[in-house]
Amino acid sequence: MSSPIIAFLSTRKSAPINEMTEPGPSDEQLETMLRIASRVPDHGKLAPWRFILYRGEARLEVGKHLVALAEQHEGPLAEGRRHQEATRFSRAPLVIGVVFVPKPHPKIPDWEKFLSAGAAAMNLCLAANALGFATNWISNWYSDDPEGRRLLGLRHDERVAGFVHVGTHSGAIFERPRPDLAEIVSDYAGPTEA
């Protein structure tokens, strides 16, 4: 089983966002990543997702919005909390919002369309990693907040599938424990008890 693709997939890791640096992807690399992200299972050919690019000064603007929103929820923030919210989107050179766009279809449920958006986020990570960039896919508290979603550019009916942070990482990335296959894989044994 000597395949460079299997070796690549077997060692994929998420890099800590606060350790990502410039450079981020070029426009050409970004286009490649987004094309690959769009090559996912999509029952009905609905493309129930879209991408929002947060780069340059926009990352700092998002931080100002998140500080204000966090203060609406929590009151005045301590300096550490303020810095945390202000830098949510500016730690990596690029953040790509993967947005679930519900598109009505009489036979395809929304959960299946949401899974397609999740697959787009994973393909985005893999494409960026294959181009030599580090990634980290997160959601965070503002993804579940209607005003947070609005501030991040989503429409009222859209939801966050994830924010993929992309940048350069040098050095080793910590290997986290992975599930034991014996605990998560089974042969079908018939219906479960009600």
Rank of each mutant, 00 (worst) to 15 (best):
Q29I: 09
P16T: 10
V160S: 05
K13I: 08
I184P: 02
I5L: 15
P104S: 09
E31K: 15
I36Q: 07
R81E: 11
K107E: 13
P179Y: 02
A7I: 08
I108Q: 02
A120P: 04
W137T: 03
L66R: 00
A189L: 02
L34E: 06
R50Y: 03
I5M: 14
R149D: 00
L151T: 10
G24V: 13
R35L: 14
R50K: 10
L69C: 01
S38A: 13
L9I: 13
E28V: 14
E79G: 00
V101T: 12
G162F: 02
T11F: 04
F114D: 03
V101S: 05
V164T: 12
R12L: 10
R155N: 09
E57G: 04
P104A: 12
V166N: 06
Y188I: 05
N123K: 00
L131G: 05
I36W: 03
L77F: 04
E79A: 14
E22I: 11
M20C: 10
A78N: 11
D187E: 15
A15I: 12
Q72A: 10
I5F: 13
G162T: 02
S170T: 15
R91M: 14
E22C: 10
E147H: 11
M33I: 15
K107L: 11
L53D: 00
P177N: 05
F174L: 15
W141D: 11
R155E: 11
D144R: 10
K113F: 00
K103S: 02
G162L: 04
A37D: 05
A15C: 14
H156M: 07
I6D: 13
Y142G: 01
Y188D: 06
R176E: 13
A92F: 08
W137C: 03
P23R: 10
R91F: 08
L77G: 03
H156R: 12
L126P: 03
L53K: 12
P104D: 11
F174D: 13
L30R: 14
E31A: 15
I138V: 15
G167D: 10
G97Y: 01
D145S: 08
L60A: 14
H43M: 03
V166Q: 07
D145H: 15
D42H: 01
S143P: 01
R55W: 01
E19W: 08
R176G: 11
L69K: 01
S116C: 08
A130W: 04
K103F: 04
R82A: 12
P179T: 04
I6A: 15
S14I: 07
D42L: 00
Q29R: 07
W141A: 13
T135C: 13
R159Y: 09
A119V: 01
A119E: 03
G24L: 12
A37R: 01
G190C: 03
L126S: 07
R55M: 07
C125K: 02
S186Q: 09
S38H: 00
S26K: 10
V95P: 00
W141S: 09
E85T: 02
L126G: 01
L152R: 09
A172W: 06
V164N: 05
P48H: 04
L94Q: 09
P179F: 00
G56Q: 01
L69V: 02
K13T: 12
A78M: 10
D110A: 12
F163L: 12
A134T: 04
I52Y: 01
